[in-house]
Amino acid sequence: MYRTLVLAALAGLIAGPALAAGTCSTAAKSKFQPKTTLEAQLKGEGLTVRQIKTEKGCYEVYAVDKDGKKVNAAYNAETLEKLDNAEAGEN
Rank of each mutant, 00 (worst) to 15 (best):
A40Q: 13
L19V: 07
P34W: 00
G12S: 00
Q41W: 06
G12K: 02
G22Q: 08
A15E: 05
L10G: 13
V6E: 02
L13Y: 03
E39S: 11
K29T: 14
A18G: 13
K43L: 05
V49P: 02
L10M: 12
L5I: 05
I14V: 15
Q33F: 03
T37N: 03
C24E: 01
A21I: 08
S25R: 09
Q51N: 14
L47Y: 09
A9G: 10
A20F: 11
K53D: 15
V6K: 08
K43C: 08
A9K: 03
S25A: 14
L47A: 04
T26N: 12
K29R: 13
E39K: 15
S30C: 05
L19S: 12
L38G: 00
R50K: 14
R50W: 02
K56R: 15
G46F: 07
T37I: 00
L10D: 09
L13C: 12
A20G: 12
L5Y: 11
K56V: 05
T54M: 07
F32H: 11
L19C: 08
F32I: 04
V49R: 01
P17D: 06
A18E: 10
A28Q: 11
T48M: 09
I52A: 07
K56D: 14
L10K: 02
A8N: 06
G46S: 06
A15K: 05
E55T: 03
Q33E: 09
P34I: 01
P17A: 06
T23H: 11
K35Q: 14
G22Y: 05
A28G: 15
S30N: 09
P34L: 01
A9M: 10
S30P: 06
T48L: 09
V49S: 03
S25F: 07
G16R: 13
L10Q: 08
K53F: 11
G16W: 15
L38C: 00
T37W: 02
T23P: 04
L19P: 04
Q51C: 08
T4D: 14
A8E: 01
K56P: 02
L5K: 11
L42D: 06
Q33G: 00
L38N: 00
L42C: 04
C24M: 03
G12I: 02
T37V: 10
A40T: 10
L7S: 12
K35I: 08
L10F: 10
P17H: 08
K56T: 12
G44D: 04
Q51Y: 10
G16M: 14
K35E: 15
A21F: 07
A21D: 12
V6G: 02
K43V: 08
T37P: 00
E55S: 07
L13W: 04
P34S: 00
L38H: 02
G44M: 05
A18W: 15
G46N: 04
L7Q: 02
G44T: 01
K56M: 07
P34E: 00
T54H: 11
A40R: 08
T48H: 09
I14N: 09
Q41R: 14
Q33C: 01
A15P: 07
P34H: 00
A11M: 11
